[in-house]
Simulated scan of single mutants.
Amino acid sequence: MRLYLLALNPTDSVTQGFLPAAARLGLDVTVLTDHAEAHRLAYAGLPSPPEVLACEVQDFREVVGLVSRHHAPAALFSNSDHLQTQTALAAGYFGLPAKDWRATLRAKNKAELRRHLSATGLDTVWSAELAPGQDPATLADPPFPCVLKPREGVASEDVALVTDAAELALRHREIQHRRPGATLVVEELLTGDLFTLETLGDGRDRRVLGGFRTRLSPPPHFVEEVLEFVPAYPQAVLDQVLAQLDALGVGLGACHTEFVLQADGRARLIEVNYRAIGDQCDLMLAQILEIPYFEHVLTAHLGRPLPDVPGPRTDRRARNEVVCADRAGTLTAAPGRYDGEADGVRLAYRPLRPVGERHEHYRTNRDYLGVVWAIGADQAAVDAAVAGFVAAHRWEITP
């Protein structure tokens, strides 16, 4: 059976998660990508590297054409935010298990997500779109402070808190300079503690796997710095989030949902990422739950029912913390990959930027130098293990 995996740039989720899982399932894998050489280099060290074919994956018609000329597909799958709708349309063309393309579009298009949830009556957030070149002064009474972000953005890139009309105009000019053809969204700031919900569905049933409490960088930016595992949420909170996912049409495969929990118990969605959580959290989640997480995601896309997944792991705690660059320059010193266990805490460190590489200061997750995560039975012990690793190592950036 052949799995077609659509991708843009290589990611740890695919290289370390989905490709090894596909091999364990006995699947032949063809990676379709517009970054073919980067993928071949990324997979060179794998025991069974997948076939990599160049394809304009952002056009579902090109995907359909290439697959039609190649081997018969058993499944089409992507873990990219940018390729969910294309994958859904192509999978549907071949009569394979597919996400509802309307749901993938609602999740990706942040303005459409707000309109749809408002139309269902589940939640209404003040939101307005700014077309390329549109003057933000044309907006009617934005509720400052508010958030400015790309309509189809990811990873907090070009997301900023703006406090007044002058700052909105300034940030708008900056983002339009970097993204001249992008439509932006201005929406009200949703205050409260930030959490995630991780779910997995086979199109009929859904499993709730827990979530993470998220700590962000100081405003005006929204860089995720620390995530702590939350085994289970109060039922009232869970019901609110799941009702909104149902309204959006989320059902097949992995979904990573971000929401704020307000003081009155109201859960309000920030965004829906219709794929697995990234930045090593998916790899960590598989170990927290002790399940073949990546296999479960792929088998759902093969049309198989999900097996039983253990209930909330209230005996586990975990912390995922990134080390961020605080300035532009060349990384001249950093620790290498590490895995260890001590006093009941399992700890891992993964470099995300090679020593010797130069970068600007982005104020997004592109500033990540590495990620350290730990799993154990006690949150204080887990936190101490992560803090100890960070304190014992150095990351140096030379201007």
Rank of each mutant, 00 (worst) to 15 (best):
E51K: 12
P150K: 11
G45C: 06
R102E: 14
D100W: 00
P132T: 02
G121I: 02
S78E: 06
F60S: 09
W126I: 01
E37D: 15
S78H: 10
H116K: 13
Q134T: 10
V147E: 04
Q134F: 03
G133S: 13
D123C: 08
S80R: 13
L76S: 11
L113H: 01
A91L: 11
A131Y: 12
P142D: 07
L113Q: 11
A42C: 05
Q86K: 07
H39M: 07
F144I: 06
E62N: 02
G121N: 14
E51C: 14
P73R: 12
A38V: 13
N109K: 01
E152T: 13
H71S: 15
Y43H: 12
A54N: 11
A131F: 01
A140E: 15
H71W: 07
R102H: 13
D135M: 07
G95W: 05
A103Y: 01
P73I: 04
R40Y: 09
A98V: 02
V154D: 02
E152Q: 13
H82G: 04
A88S: 12
Q86P: 02
F94I: 08
L122Y: 07
A74T: 05
Y43W: 15
L41Q: 15
L130P: 08
A131Q: 15
L113C: 14
L66K: 02
S78V: 10
H70S: 02
E62L: 06
A44S: 15
P142L: 11
W126F: 12
L66D: 00
E152N: 14
P143F: 13
R151F: 11
S118F: 03
T120W: 12
L83E: 08
R106Q: 08
L105S: 13
P50L: 10
P97V: 08
G95N: 03
L96S: 11
A74R: 12
A44C: 14
G121T: 11
S80Y: 11
V52I: 15
P97M: 03
S156N: 09
A91T: 02
T87A: 03
G65R: 06
P142S: 03
H82A: 15
T138S: 14
V63L: 00
Y93R: 01
E129N: 09
A140V: 14
L76T: 05
V67A: 03
P49C: 04
T87P: 05
A75T: 01
D100T: 11
P132S: 12
V57C: 07
S78P: 00
E62I: 04
P136Y: 08
E112G: 11
L41K: 15
A128F: 04
W101N: 03
S118L: 07
G65V: 00
Q86G: 07
D123S: 13
R69F: 08
L53V: 09
K149I: 06
A140L: 14
S118E: 15
P49H: 01
A72H: 14
A155F: 04
K110T: 05
N79C: 10
T85Y: 04
P150D: 12
E157G: 03
A137E: 12
P73H: 06
L76R: 08
L105R: 12
T124V: 12
H82S: 09
K108G: 07
A42Y: 01
Q134I: 02
V147Y: 09
P97H: 06
L89S: 05
D100I: 05
